[in-house]
């Protein structure tokens, strides 16, 4: 057990090291990315440029620059932005984490619950009108782009029908801290949660339905019927558990990616200053320290999410436990 955790940890360090080196090298190989020129301003003289280079350490060899940047992220935590002088990137990332986590976590709870219900109902009523309707709705959810859906949601809840009884409770866009205002936190996030979840409900519902239907063909389902168990018990206790394995794999990948910044579009549409937005802005400004910090954070989450998935696997499937 301890060995497995250590192995995961080693793997995480390896992934983070690899990614950071790649990001670092790509940055310096990108044309027009010279940070000194950007920092010094548009018409800076060559003396100013040289001074900036020296004060930021750009005249050092790359590996020295790399080591110093890593040290500043992980040890001293005082890495500053190249673009906004004095803006410390580590606290900026730390501030964005609760926003993204709130968004993604709430949406995940919603999509997991709803898609499990949809998957089970569709599989249980296979080929009926209800199954067909649910699958058609799922497909609709998958095909709606999230930024478009978000804008439509905003249009409805913020302007067109904001004054109607149905949506008058929706607060203006933005994020409220859970610790300051739990009710406000919840209300501002409801619409973003639904928007983000709709896509995943469609995908997960379909995946689960297919997995359950596949399990229902297994020999052990026939055994369960021969035992005289009720159809409901067969479905919930025997077919569902084995079907959840595919579901969990997908969830680990999606959740890790979303927490790492893939919820960008949702964040932008709803004015939430999360990791996605932070990464996006940093990329726009070619702000290496910020890019580096967000990328490090994202890769850490992807690896952690994968470790959690592996753990759930072992809970779900005893065949994977070492004897």
């Amino acid at each position: 057990m301890i060995y497995a955790i250590l192995r995961r940890f080693g793997q995480m360090l390896f992934v983070m090291f690899g990614i950071s080196v790649i990001v670092f090298l790509i940055f310096f190989a990108t044309p027009g990315a010279d940070p000194a020129a950007r920092i010094a301003g548009r018409n800076a003289s060559s003396e100013v440029l040289a001074a900036v280079r020296h004060s930021f350490g750009f005249d050092q060899p790359l590996y020295v620059q790399y080591t110093r940047m890593m040290e500043k992220i992980f040890v001293t935590g005082d890495l500053t932005s190249f673009v906004n002088r004095g803006w410390k990137v580590v606290p900026a990332v730390m501030d964005s984490i609760p926003v993204t986590l709130s968004l993604v976590f709430g949406a995940a709870v919603l999509w997991v619950m709803v898609s499990i219900i949809i998957g089970i109902v569709a599989a249980a009523t296979r080929d009926s009108w209800l199954d067909k309707l649910l699958m058609a709705l799922g497909l609709l959810g998958i095909s709606m782009p999230v930024y478009w859906l978000g804008e439509v949601m905003n249009l409805i809840t913020q302007s067109r029908y904001h004054d109607s009884w149905a949506f008058s409770w929706v607060p203006p866009l933005g994020y409220k801290n859970f610790s300051d205002d739990p009710k406000g936190w919840f209300l501002t996030l409801v619409i973003p949660w639904i928007t983000l979840a709709i896509l995943y409900i469609g995908i997960y519902g379909r995946v689960l339905r297919a997995a359950i239907i596949e399990s229902m063909q297994e020999d052990y389902i026939r055994t369960a019927r021969a035992k005289g168990l009720s159809e409901a018990r067969i479905l919930f206790r025997h077919a569902l558990r084995t079907s959840l394995i595919a579901f969990v794999t997908l969830f680990g990948l999606d959740f890790g990616a979303l927490v790492g910044g893939s919820a960008l579009l949702t964040e932008v549409v709803f004015g939430l200053h999360g990791i996605g937005k932070l990464t996006y802005d940093a990329l726009q400004n070619l702000d290496l320290p910020m890019i580096m910090a967000t990328v490090m954070y994202a890769s850490m989450f992807v690896v952690i999410a994968n470790a959690v998935v592996d753990f759930i696997y072992i809970l779900l499937d005893p065949r994977l436990r070492a004897s």
Binding site: D219, Y220, G228, T242
Partner: peptide
């Protein structure tokens, strides 16, 4: 009746039991 008064044994014991 099934499993109670009438019980069945299947061909392939590898797949006849729920693995989990």
């Amino acid at each position: 009746l099934r499993g109670n008064e009438i019980a069945m044994i299947f061909q392939d014991p590898m797949t006849a039991l729920t693995p989990v």
